[in-house]
Every structure is written in C-alpha cells, then in structure tokens.
C-alpha cells in the first residue's frame, strides 16, 4: 500500500512537471487544445498503469510521446462529438504570442493538420522535437526510408501552404 502511494506521488510530480510540454506535442499533432487534452489524458492513463514497471525501465516522456504518436489521431478526432464550453482567454499565456502574429501561429498548426497523419507525426518528431531519422522510425514503428519520404513530402507541403501566407 505504501509502495502504491509512493508510485502515485511520483506519478503526480511527473504529471505536474510535464503536462504542459507534452500537451503542446499533442496539440501540434491534432490542432485542437481540447482534443490534445483528451489525447494526453489517455496517454497519462496508460502511463499510470505502466508506472510501477516503467520507472526503472524507460523515460516516462518517451513513453507518453510514443503513446501520443502511435494513437490514431484522425480516428480519435472523428469519434469526438462532444460540445465544449471554455472561458474566453482561459489560460492563454500573453508572453507566448509576443514574437509571432496570431494568424501566423495558427497558419502553421492549420497547415500541419492538412498533412496526412503519418507525415504530420514525422514532421513534429523530426523537425520540432529534433529526433533523428532512426529515432523517429523507432518511435513510429516504421522504417527509416519511410521517415525520409514522409519528412521531405511533409516539409514540401508545409512550404507550399505557408510560403504565400508569409510573403503575401
């Protein structure tokens, strides 16, 4: 019982410390803050179950990230039919928008959502989170050649969409 409490305390510390950065990854993958919350909650629930055997075995960030990227986000999105109400401006970080205009920030996330799901995941893992080709392949359970082709196609598509917006 004491061990279970220790696990839960450690898990709680981890959640509080990591939920912000991990939800940003989920948001980049799905383009919707509330769906991102749902995806992250699912990942945290799996992590909760795995926590006792995971602590010594694997980096929890890696576990959650793998859970997020191996989730079928588009299928999840189609299943989501709930109506939500959110307080205006809830939790918005005013410092966050300091450098980039809102429409440009939105454009990147919107353009990303236009990519096929696997391309989107490759772009996020490789070009935002900085994983190598090998690591991205391992994370997604695909081979390295596929990572390379998804990466180049994904970037080319983003460029086509964002270039007119940036220069227009």
């Amino acid at each position: 019982m004491a061990r279970a409490r220790r696990h839960e305390a450690a898990f709680s510390d981890y959640v509080v410390a990591s939920q912000d950065r991990l939800r940003r990854v989920a948001y980049a993958l799905c383009g919707d803050w509330h769906l991102a919350d749902d995806l992250l909650q699912e990942a945290f629930t799996k992590l909760y179950l795995a926590w006792p055997r995971l602590s010594a075995d694997r980096d929890p960030d890696g576990y959650v990230r793998t859970t997020l990227v191996r989730t079928s986000i588009d299928a999840h999105r189609r299943r989501q039919r709930r109506v939500r109400t959110v307080a205006l401006g809830a939790g918005q970080d005013p410092a966050a928008a300091a450098d980039t205009p809102l429409e440009e920030r939105d454009a990147l996330i919107t353009a990303l959502q236009e990519l096929p799901e696997q391309q989107r995941k490759v772009v996020v893992l490789r070009h935002w989170l900085g994983l190598s080709v090998r690591e991205t392949a391992a994370e997604l359970g695909i081979n390295e050649g596929t990572v390379k082709s998804h990466s180049s196609r994904g970037l080319a598509s983003l460029e086509r969409v964002l270039a007119p917006q940036r220069h227009g």
């Binding site: 990854v25 909650q41 918005q92």
Partner: peptide, 25 residues
C-alpha cells in the same frame, strides 16, 4: 521551424486538476 513550433503551441486552456488525471488512472 523549431521556433515557429515553440510559439505556435504556446498557451492553451488551463490543465484539468491533478486529481482528475489521477482519477482516470
């Protein structure tokens, strides 16, 4: 692109209470 991602994903609504996260688990 990394900086763009950093900024495009900043903000968002408040997180649910920790107790809710634990309850699901």
């Amino acid at each position: 692109l990394k900086d763009r991602f950093d900024q495009a994903t900043s903000g968002g609504p408040s997180h649910p209470p920790l107790e809710e996260r634990l309850h699901h688990g």
